[in-house]
Design a protein around this nucleic acid. Structure first.
Lengths: 226, 226
DNA sequence: TGCTCATATATACAAGTGTATAATAAATGC
DNA sequence: GCATTTATTATACACTTGTATATATGAGCA
């Protein structure tokens, strides 16, 4: 069980280089990514996928995998980043369609829950894979969530200013909102439509609590570090 | 790869029965549980443990495992339940030592973070294994979190009544507090002491926001809370 | 035509897995 | 003593895994 890999292959794999001599690639990352996505399901997390299994699904030889990813973890990170990116696009679009703060909460939660049933399993990846696998793996998910928080933070500041209020601790508020939605979304994965409706309502209620707390003036005491 | 198992073995395994004839057991579930716990770590989740690996660590023959658990998933569920139980005891004890609502939040978070470094890895199990593995597996974790929420709910009602206030939606509030603490605790696993301190402060801030929101009469204005 | 690349596959191997089957070990009751 | 019953181990099998090594394929260029 050596852990090193054929050096020449690894090097050439990720520098697409200018089209010089040599056989033209017939396999691209996309093909492998799609195969991996196809294998994911309610009971299969990225961390449980094996290289051979992915290669089989992609219809390529096991070793061909190495020419496109260093290992399965690298593929997982790519999946996570891709999932985060496309999800931010979706949520961002939803946020732009509304103007007032309350609707933002409601519609964001709606969009989020819609994505649970989308045939691309991007949201599943961020939710379920959350905190297993290698350190690198987990940090990739964390990074994506931080992106969400960052965008939400600026939105919070902008919206509350428009409403004449002021969010006490924008980054903490954004984080609370984000983490709670993800936590509740993860629960929703195992639920039927009816339960999900209740969960959505409850989630909106939770988020409103946070917003009320964040906008409250009485935070003077809690604002201070101790 | 057959999935059935020697019937006689499986049956006799979980009916301790009255002491009749036959060799006396030298292996007990505890030994296996301990072995599994020893194998867990920041990069090893219960779901990644193999039967043989656990047996090796426990110093027993692979097949002996079957006499005590149907499979690794069953062991995982046992671990989860045990983790939840002992954690509830710890948190419950911490809650009883304090009287007023503010301190409850602070001290609960403190106890929680303390447990991150405890040598028994019970909290790790509930945090990291959260939502991977089989359905049965996930439901076991969910069940434990619900226990937490239930206990917290009654505490919330009692405490807010004592303070003359009233929690708007106790179960949603309890759930928001619980899930947020678990989400933040999961992040803490990958952090050093300094970062954890900041995270603890931020978490307390978040929880206070929720409490303020939960105690507010309407969604609009806030009620003073000490 | 060959040479030299980049790319993809074939083959092979050591290691690990779950578990069926059979054997061994220790206790009981006769 | 012996048969019976339970607990544990030993052996074996078919299968999967990651990956090292070697080979084949196809493109550009001399």
């Amino acid at each position: 069980m050596t852990s090193t890999i054929n050096a020449t292959a690894a090097v050439s794999a990720f520098a697409p280089a200018t089209r010089g001599p040599g056989r033209r690639p017939e396999i691209d990352r996309e093909r492998i990514v799609q195969a991996a996505l196809k294998l994911l399901g309610p009971d299969r997390s990225v961390a449980t996928l094996s290289l051979r299994e992915i290669a089989r699904e992609a219809g390529i030889a096991p070793n061909s995998f190495y020419r496109h990813f260093h290992n399965v973890d690298a593929l997982a990170v790519a999946l996570i980043e891709r999932a985060g990116r496309s999800l931010r696009v979706i949520i961002g679009a939803a946020r732009q369609r509304v103007g007032r703060e309350r609707s933002v909460i409601q519609s964001s939660v709606d969009v989020f829950l819609e994505q649970l049933d989308a045939e691309d399993k991007f949201l599943h990846i961020l939710l379920r894979e959350g905190y297993v696998g290698s350190r690198e793996f987990r940090q990739a998910v964390e990074r994506q969530l931080c992106f969400f928080e960052e965008e939400l933070k600026t939105d919070l500041i902008r919206l509350s200013a428009m409403a004449g209020g002021r969010v006490m601790r924008p980054e903490a508020t954004a984080r609370a909102l984000t983490r709670l939605v993800f936590a509740m979304g993860t629960r929703a994965l195992d639920m039927g439509p009816n339960e999900r409706r209740d969960l959505a309502e409850e989630t909106v209620c939770m988020l409103r609590m946070i917003m009320v707390g964040a906008l409250a003036e009485t935070g003077a005491k809690t604002e201070r570090r101790q």
